[in-house]
Amino acid sequence: MNKLSTYFSPIIALFIIFIIWEFLVNLFSIQLYILPAPTDIFLSLSDNLRELLLATLNTLKITLFAFLIATLIAIGLAIIFSLSKILEISLYPITVIFQVTPVVAIAPLIIIWVGLDNAEMAILILSVIVAFFPVLANTNLGFRSVDKNLKELFLINRASKWQTLMKLNLPYATPYILTGMKTSIGLALIGTVVAEFVAGTGSSAGLSWIIIESGNRLDIAKLFSALILLVLSGIFLFLLMSTIEYSILRRWHQSVKENES
């Protein structure tokens, strides 16, 4: 398999699925409000492009913002845990609560707390809650995996806690942190979309609102357009994180080196 076919095979496969889909919809004369043909979806996409793109940008904006906040909180917590064993064993189990509670279950609470007219803030908080755990868990694992001999080397050289954190623990945990961030960025998008569903429109109109609205009006072609943009957003975010990961680990990490050879 060469590189070109790895990239193009899925695109060609998708194209063939679209052709079969188009053919079947026409063959069985399926109604537009049940399953539109791909051409109908693309027509709807171009008709509503401005509205759809604005909604996508809105959703992406909150997702990225939530992702950044979640990452900072998670790394911060992991650092605190690495410095204090007692804080780690007391607080880490509590953070698991956020991980195991479905976001829709806590959404009403958050919305009430920040106020119904503050929907955007509620969505942001909910998305942060969904996204922060993978970074925390992976950073924590990274800190705990630091090579024993390297730690001894720092001890022999009488390194301060700050030096050990900045020059050893954080760089050592970087591949772990990036893995957590790759999971998190997808979760942040899911969190944002789910929270948008629960919070309603408020001041912002994200992709969820378009999905709800077109569903109610049986405008299934528009609903599909919004879904396509949602999928593309997810792929964009994943590629963004993969690119960042590649550029950071390119020179030294085995995972990247092996993929290249």
Partner: peptide
Amino acid sequence: IGFVFQNPTLMPWR
């Protein structure tokens, strides 16, 4: 004191 470990114990990111 200088210490040389059994493994080279280098930092791969440096």
